[in-house]
Design a protein around this nucleic acid. Sequence first.
RNA 1: GGAGAGGUGACCGAGAGGCUGAAGGUGCUCGCCUGCUAAGCGAGUGUAGUGCUAAUCCCGCUACCGAGGGUUCGAAUCCCUCCCUCUCCGCCA
Length: 424
Amino acid sequence: MFDVKLVLENREKVLKNLSARNFKETEAVDKIEEFDSKRKKLLTEFEAAKSLQNSRSKEMPQVMKNGTEEEKAAIKNELKLLSEKIKSFTPELKKVENDLNDLLLSIPNTLAEDTPIGKDESENVVVKKWGEKPVFDFKPLEHFDIAKKGIDLERGAKLCGTRFVVYTGAIAALERALMNYMMDCAVKNGYIEVIPPVIVNRETMTGSGQLPKFESDAYKTSEDLFLIPTAEVSLVNLHRNEVIQSSDLPLNYVSYTPCFRREAGSYGKDTKGIIRLHQFNKVELVKFTLPEKSDRELKKLTENAESILQGLGLHYRVVELCSGDLGFNSMKTFDIEVWLPGQNCFREISSCSNTGDFQARRASVRFKRENGKKTEFTHILNGSGLAIDRCIVAVLENYQQNDGTVIVPEVLRPYMENKEVITL
RNA sequence: GGAGAGGUGACCGAGAGGCUGAAGGUGCUCGCCUGCUAAGCGAGUGUAGUGCUAAUCCCGCUACCGAGGGUUCGAAUCCCUCCCUCUCCGCCA
């Protein structure tokens, strides 16, 4: 969320940022200015009237006790009129405040100073490559052909609909192994393990930035509760409306949860296999940091996510998103893309973002320095560590053998009864 | 889900229509005092908005006693709705 002052003081910069993000409704900036000055004007009048009411009200009991009949009637009448005046302000003031708030909630984050400018994903910047493409002496298959039985999309569709899956046997075991491996890595790297609710209320969804703008992307219950699209939502809101001691920062959390996404607007995209599901599992990392440390912590977070792939021996690259491809909440994002031989392309398996104080403002997550008087907003970062289902795709496609079996990466074997190979 | 009791500052806990941003205590901070420590004495100690301002320092004003409405000239105090906590019952993994 934006600070009104920031918008008004850095008008040109904000507009530049918005256009770099392909954010069209730039008139919002003018409206913010308009609503804010209207709000201040109303507020000043309202508070002046309120102040008068308060002081006159204090005199009221004295007058009622000792005053003449005339004085009594006068003060009563005066206060009655004042009260009515004050009440007449309220709806107008509320409306302006709400309108202003809605606008502020609908504008995407600013860009980091060094975020590359670009119009869409074609202008993202590859910043790192790790490992090598595996070489096959046969034509590598896609994951859904490797594990026809274990990845049961037909039954997933039967139970719920398209883009739902049932895992069975070795694939279900692989899923569990990956989850445990990732969680153990995160805990070793100093993240606190959390099991949060996967259904959350409206405030929570607003705090992390899903609402009000992206309501149609989320599954909603009849009680106005939402299924989380990522554990980021739950973790970011862990400290909503809290003031943290600076000595407790950074706070690093990791969570393994199912994630639910309606994927509205992606019909026809990735319809085969388990690349894009309405329900998938993900290990999510979230950090609360001091503002001056968040840049470094984003690097660490990204490295933590990368280390999972390194452990699995999977070839990947790191891409920095350009302004036009950046998510609503983020000021700087590194995507990790893993190599998929079956599809013959890199696919996003993690997205690590620094949201700066954007989410912290929405959720009011603040901290106090050792001897500081003022509270400040923390910086909040998030990253997948990693998307488990896509990791299954990567393991299957990279470790497939000509005989239809798949080699189990060494780091996963302790989690899979020390099996070296799975037969599907 | 049913019955009852509650939700007040960092914490404990008063207040039951105007004198309460909130007694008292604890904690914390800064002074004083004291062989050291403890005790004691004094002062301070929330957040947000807004006005003034070079200022995120002062100072003024406004709001905030779980949340949102209502009654009233005036609400922490009365009424309504919701949320949460505790006790008992029911149900259940």
